[in-house]
Simulated scan of single mutants.
Amino acid sequence: MDTLEQFIQSNRNPRELKRALAVQMSQRGHTYREIRDVLQVSLGFVTTCCQRYEANGVEGLKLNYWGTQGYLNPQQKQEILQWLAQKDAWLLEEVVQQIEDAYGVVYRSYQSYYALLKQAGFSWKKSHSAHPDKDETQVEEKKLKSWSYWCSGRPRLPVVKCE
Rank of each mutant, 00 (worst) to 15 (best):
H30D: 13
R12S: 07
C50K: 12
R28T: 14
M25D: 09
Y107M: 01
L116S: 01
R28S: 15
G60P: 03
L4D: 00
P14F: 01
K126N: 09
C49N: 06
V95Q: 03
D2S: 11
L43A: 05
G70K: 14
I99S: 04
L144G: 07
N13K: 06
A20V: 00
L116Y: 01
Y114R: 04
Q111F: 14
M25Q: 08
E79A: 15
Q97F: 08
F122H: 00
E100Y: 10
L21E: 09
Y149D: 04
Y114C: 04
S26L: 15
Q6R: 12
D133W: 12
Y110A: 15
R33W: 14
K145S: 12
R108M: 12
E16C: 01
S127K: 12
Y32D: 09
Q24E: 07
M1I: 07
Q98W: 15
A55C: 10
V96C: 06
E136C: 08
G57E: 02
G121V: 04
R36P: 02
L61V: 02
L4Q: 01
L63F: 04
F122L: 01
K87M: 04
S112V: 00
E163T: 12
A22I: 03
K145H: 13
S109R: 15
G44V: 00
E59K: 07
D2N: 12
I80V: 15
S26I: 14
E79K: 11
A102F: 08
W66I: 14
K145G: 09
Q27P: 05
S26V: 13
G67I: 04
A115P: 04
E79H: 11
M1V: 06
D2C: 10
M25R: 13
Y65E: 14
I35P: 03
I8N: 00
C49M: 08
G60W: 04
D2G: 10
Q138L: 15
Y110E: 14
K143S: 07
L84Q: 02
Q76D: 08
E16G: 03
Y114F: 06
R28F: 11
W147C: 09
E141S: 09
S129C: 11
Y114H: 06
A115V: 05
H128Q: 10
A20Y: 00
K126W: 13
H30A: 13
S10M: 10
R33Q: 12
P14V: 05
S112W: 06
G121T: 05
C50E: 11
